[in-house]
Design a protein around this nucleic acid. Structure first.
Lengths: 109, 109
DNA sequence: TCTATAGTTCATATATATTGAACTACAGTA
DNA sequence: TACTGTAGTTCAATATATATGAACTATAGA
């Protein structure tokens, strides 16, 4: 688990959105459900690739339940190693999404 | 200036170290001096490429002074757009460097 | 065992990174 | 106006990484 690895994992818009969705759930999500919530169609091989990058960076862990693989963010480990980092990134992303939303609606200041 | 772009720019160890060095100076550094402080030998074309990524992400601006190009971090703009983000990343990086230093000296807990 | 579902791995086409060589921009000197 | 040197950029070639269809693995249910 390195900063460069974490930042790299989060530097892809899809993965950043995936992590945010995972953070919003208490017990994690499977790949299909995660992709579904992003409202972005994607081949499952690509989805699997993104999950792998997130896993290898240390951002998430996955656990098998039947045929599904449930993934969750390793919040505690991240927080103890790099306090505040993930939250700052998610806050910044939320802010960006909010700003983009306002611009899209032609209500920007 | 997007989160994904900023995280991507910072996800390379060289660029992360470059930004930290730039943050430590009051008035910026030229390319050669930045590279010199990193103590990493690198062709100038590679160095120029890294500067370009940082510039395009919005992290730095460069200004010509004679033959030199002085670069500095766009601290104010970053702070107003994504408060706390850059500092969190740099803090995490400093922490990682400190930990690596202790491990290297065989004094890890 | 057969079928269906959820993901992974593999092969390959596309895209991005690295780097030597050539080029641009400026300064100093004559 | 050259000519020389220094600082960076751009270009072209190669090396590495990403995206994705096709094939494969793992589990569940009938």
């Amino acid at each position: 688990m390195t900063i460069a690895g974490i930042l790299y994992a989060l530097s892809d818009p899809i993965r950043l959105a995936m992590v945010r969705e995972l953070l919003r759930t208490a017990h994690g999500l499977n790949c299909t459900e995660t992709a579904c919530r992003l409202k972005v169609a994607m081949p499952k091989s690509t989805l699997s690739h993104h999950h792998r990058i997130l896993r290898e960076s240390g951002l998430i862990v996955s656990e098998r339940h039947g045929t599904e693989l449930t993934s969750r963010v390793r919040t505690e480990e991240l927080e103890s190693r790099f306090p505040g980092l993930l939250q700052s990134v998610i806050d910044a992303y939320d802010q960006e999404c909010a700003t983009a939303g306002r611009r899209g609606a032609r209500r920007a200041s």
